[in-house]
Nucleic acid binder design. Structure first.
Lengths: 121, 121
DNA sequence: ACAGGTGAATTACATGTGTAATCGACAGGG
DNA sequence: CCCTGTCGATTACACATGTAATTCACCTGT
């Protein structure tokens, strides 16, 4: 699966949330804090098409875009990549990291424990 | 803190593991599967210096390079960034992801549970 | 004293990315 | 039927990155 750049990822998020959409619709839904023009969004859509992570169907003179890969798959790949690079592939090392940095609230801890307990059953 | 590119990160890893080192030493320690020439490694060292994540001291005609940022800090920042982007900042969502993908061995689960239990005390 | 090796600095060049502007086709309103 | 707005496609351009080669200075052995 092709890598998706950070900016492009924001476009994918829009389409994972709702699809199919026209280029204009995507632009309207991209977080405003990006400050992208419609032209910029169109460039990203083209590049994502070229990467094969989007598909489009014609709708008259326009295209309707939709994701060609599943969000979970992409997210799994990216997080796996990070865990491999930074934690030698060891998930517990990541969790230890987060713990050491106080990134885990008591609620997080409870939730994770619940998840793990269910996993074992 | 400046972003570090993936290739550059491999150089940082070498220096986090052992420092200070000369450029030649770094090149010798970079994983061979990268297939980098000495020149390439020197380019990376310069860029990392420019980014302020390395420092160097003169040793006669050569430089000795050493990290100027701590590995934990960088790793924390990068993993935080990924968790924010892909999981809305929710660590349990990440763990759920890993679980759904069978990325957690029973040993991992046990280890994480132990970590969490200690956290609560 | 000079040649060759070695160091950093400078330059190179293709590709990816962020961020558009412009172009040419076409459709719909007057 | 023509103007104007809207589409996607093409082009633009600067900066980052991967991957070096080249240059210039200096040290060391003959």
């Amino acid at each position: 699966m092709e890598r998706i750049a950070e900016g492009e990822y924001a476009v994918m998020e829009v389409l994972w949330d709702e699809a199919p959409l026209t280029a204009a619709d995507v632009a309207a839904r991209v977080p405003e804090n990006k400050g992208w023009s419609l032209a910029t969004v169109k460039t990203m859509l083209s590049r994502l098409l070229a990467k094969g992570v989007l598909s489009h169907e014609e709708d008259g003179r326009r295209y309707l875009y939709r994701p060609a890969i599943r969000r979970e798959d992409y997210v799994a790949e990216e997080s796996g990549r990070l865990i491999d690079r930074m934690f030698g592939g060891r998930v517990p090392a990541l969790v230890a990291q987060l713990a050491a940095r106080d990134k885990l609230t008591p609620a997080d801890i409870a939730e994770i424990e619940k998840l793990l307990k269910e996993l074992k059953s």
